[in-house]
């Protein structure tokens, strides 16, 4: 038990990643508000980023910028951070796109609740076909 706890404390970024991931998934799947879904997605994405970035971290390492004086220093792995920058770009575009979709839906239905939208869509269709008749 103690060993497990120690492991947990040493690897706390991973633990947080898992927790964040769970929160994100839960939010996406259980909330019917579109904004909350979007937030869940972003939280989930952050979990992935943390996982990646934490993997590059080395205890006592220095930032990976070339210091001419100190060749012996242990550098933090910069690759995961660089990669996650790309990931963040992707996540930004996803968010922007999703927001524009949400706005589109809000303009149409006046709500951001997924279930309500589904219900209203069915009603709208009914009215439409009645009109046509």
């Amino acid at each position: 038990m103690k060993a497990l706890l120690e492991k947990l404390i040493i690897n706390y970024p991973y633990f947080f990643a898992v927790v964040l991931f769970a929160i994100g998934v839960l939010t996406v799947l259980t909330r019917s508000n579109l904004f909350k879904k979007l937030l869940g997605i972003n939280i989930m994405g952050s979990a992935g980023f943390i996982l990646f970035i934490a993997s590059g971290n080395i205890r006592g390492g220095v930032e990976p910028i070339l210091h001419t004086s100190d060749h012996e220093a242990v550098y933090v792995n910069p690759l995961p951070s660089a990669l996650m920058l790309t990931g963040i770009v992707v996540s930004v575009s996803v968010t922007a796109f999703a927001l524009s979709l949400i706005i589109r839906l809000y303009k149409e239905y006046g709500t951001t609740d997924a279930q309500r939208i589904a219900r209203m869509r069915n009603e709208v269709k009914k009215i439409d076909s009645n009109d046509r008749r």
Partner: peptide, 21 residues
Amino acid sequence: AAEAAFNYLILATLASSLVVS
């Protein structure tokens, strides 16, 4: 279409998170 795209986006991003993890 917007609704379908949003649902697709959410699930696909979920999948992307899984893949990146």
